[in-house]
Amino acid sequence: MSKAGENNRLDRRKFINKTVRYSLAIGVCGVGAVLAGKASKGELVWQLDPAKCVQCGRCATNCVLTPSAVKCIHVYDMCGYCDLCSGYFRVNTKDLTTGAENQLCPTSAIERKFIEDPYFEYHIDEDLCIGCGKCVKGCASFGNGSLQLQVNHSLCVNCNQCSIARDCPAEAFSRVPADKAYSFKGFNRDELI
């Protein structure tokens, strides 16, 4: 056994190492390139489709954030400005006042404002809204459906795997392009603008 043999072995090991290294590099880059080829063009963000939403209440509880990044958004263009707002009042409410016993919202996040006879405007305080969807359910069943649950993108941390999406029974969550980050049921924003 000579030094030369030892060196030879070292050289061989180095060579194998190098070969494997470069083939691995090519492999990793290749996979990356192939995937990049069919990757989404822009960024993607999580959003829920109100048409599929069943207002199960999981948005309020299953988000990684407390309170949830899912909020009720009011599409004013769809609102009928009803006095008897079924998104604001409990089902059997008799007197249409802002008393706590009449309000559907558990956190009192909806403000009711008189505009003119017989119209009332409803404004959602997003700091208070917890995304439980009770008002959404109420509005959809009796009103125009102008209250809709949406992921608020100033709050959403855009998790790799949205924890609400995972548990959504209606499979309403999906990734959408960031330039079309909101989707409303029965109303297309672009048409108006």
């Binding site: 008393g99 706590a100 016993e101 309000q103 558990p106 956190t107 009192s108």
Partner: peptide, 10 residues
Amino acid sequence: EIREMDLLVR
């Protein structure tokens, strides 16, 4: 009573 309790809880 409801109003008070509601306020308290919130």
